[in-house]
Nucleic acid binder design. Structure first.
Lengths: 123, 123
DNA sequence: ACACTATACCTTGCACAACAAGGTATCTGG
DNA sequence: CCAGATACCTTGTTGTGCAAGGTATAGTGT
């Protein structure tokens, strides 16, 4: 079967759209309570049917960035059975950052929605 | 005065959010009819109150990309008075691409909206 | 005439996030 | 004891938005 639209090229768009929104997403998930990295990766895939899937190689740098920015605190937990997990928890600064990003996201999507609605009205 | 939140750092987020959506925006504007580059830049700033502002140095590469992909055709117009303008017009392939990007945008924003709504329901 | 601004196009180099593709170490099931 | 799952991490690549430069023409003011 010939691939007319070459779906592998399409991947690029998804990749770009995720830019900048990943931090918002992670902060939001953490606002529901503590979580560890691998958990966030699987949660994201499940809860969005793959629409916001990320690889762990993408997520860990995000978490490190958030930690360095003081948005999250880190706690290692080594259970008697099982692999050690690194738990992340939102700080007050992190909550503020979350609200700020939510606002920026809303502003942006509203502007997009307004623009994309435009011609259907004016023509 | 001390800049606690350093607004110049915030610019980064806007920049990232635009990623991938710029092509969609440009294709959409062109779906309303022919336009030249400089016109698109000013239109974008005006119609979104700066929320989707781009510099011309950003737009021209986008237009070139679209041309190379066969999404637009180009026509120079040199009026008796005034600077020559390069007009862009959507091709059939461009319209298809536009529809496709609109779908991807919708899928993405819906997934985001669902995720961001989540905790308010479940807790 | 001359300077200045606005219009309109283009190019180069940088920054930086998402990802693929590698890696390590520990635990569990057969 | 070995395969797979869990859980973490790192390096190199790629694409895109942008700043900061550039060119050329037309209009305005003095």
């Amino acid at each position: 079967m010939i691939e007319l639209h070459r779906p592998e090229e399409r991947k690029g768009i998804e990749r770009e759209l995720k830019r900048g929104s990943l931090e918002l997403i992670v902060l939001h998930l953490l606002s529901q309570g503590e979580a560890y990295g691998y958990e966030i990766v699987t949660k994201l895939t499940e809860q969005t049917n793959g629409a916001l899937e990320v690889t762990d190689g993408t997520l860990y740098p995000v978490l490190y960035r958030l930690e360095r920015a003081g948005a999250v605190t880190v706690r290692w937990e080594t259970p008697e059975r099982g692999v050690p997990r690194k738990y992340y928890r939102l700080t007050t600064a992190g909550k503020e950052e979350l609200h700020h990003l939510e606002e920026e996201w809303t502003t942006f999507t509203k502007a997009m929605a307004k623009l994309l609605r435009q011609d259907r009205e004016s023509r």
